[in-house]
């Protein structure tokens, strides 16, 4: 299975679709295909229905949270310092992340191929968190997209029944996000560590020490 081929195939068949191959650095070699949200549904429909592809089985759908992360890289630049040109190491800060990502693992039962890893990204993590739902194409995404909505807060447009799956109705936050803060339900624990210990100490201090 060649990702380049699939990419050009989709590009010819779904006009206007922007695709990008995301390389995977691990020995697994499972590279993935990033699809823009506007054409994702059409691209996925093509992958499902094209006779030479037939990705009829969407095994896994999941979300990933990528909060904004500053990566500082050292870049050598030439600068004029005190009238003399010098090589100076300059730290360039670049921002990565800042979006929610949804990943689908597609397989073909008929042709016994796969996995094809399909990714979609939201524009940011707060407001523009809408992505097209692929449930009308693969029913298997129904509960999994509900789970992603529940735990990450991605809104799936076109999902027939987008409700929380695991958390209860009325729950506000999205627990799988990286910046999720646990509710403060302190309970004494004899062998507290790290975060739990800090919280326990704060509580003991608030109660006036013990």
């Amino acid at each position: 299975m060649n990702l380049e081929e699939i990419k050009s195939e989709i590009e010819t068949n779904v006009p206007g679709c922007r695709l990008e191959i995301i390389p995977n650095g691990s020995p697994s070699g499972q590279h993935s295909l990033l699809v823009d949200a506007d054409h994702a549904f059409a691209a996925a429909a093509y992958l499902r229905d094209a006779p030479n592809r037939q990705f009829d089985y969407c095994s896994n759908a999941t979300g990933i949270d990528w909060p904004i992360k500053e990566v500082s890289t050292k870049v050598k630049t030439k600068k004029i310092v005190d009238g003399v040109e010098k090589d100076v190491d300059e730290v360039v800060k670049t921002q990565t992340g800042g979006y929610l990502e949804v990943v689908y693992h597609l397989f073909s039962v008929e042709l016994r191929q796969g996995p094809l890893v399909l990714r979609m990204r939201t524009e940011d993590r707060a407001e523009r968190i809408h992505l097209p739902s692929l449930t009308p194409l693969w029913r298997s995404a129904e509960y999994q997209e509900r789970e992603i909505f529940d735990l990450y807060g991605v809104m799936f447009d076109g999902h027939p029944d987008l409700r929380r799956l695991l958390m209860w109705e009325g729950f506000e936050d999205h627990p799988m996000r990286r910046d999720y803060v646990d509710p403060d339900d302190y309970e004494y624990e004899p062998t507290a560590h790290d975060e739990v210990l800090k919280r326990a100490q704060a509580h003991v201090a608030a109660e006036g020490g013990r």
Partner: peptide
């Protein structure tokens, strides 16, 4: 190393990945 992988087996209940 940084990267990702999907591993799946035929569990008694179905595809466990």
């Amino acid at each position: 190393k940084a990267g990702e992988a999907y591993g799946r087996i035929e569990g008694p209940k179905g595809e466990l990945g």
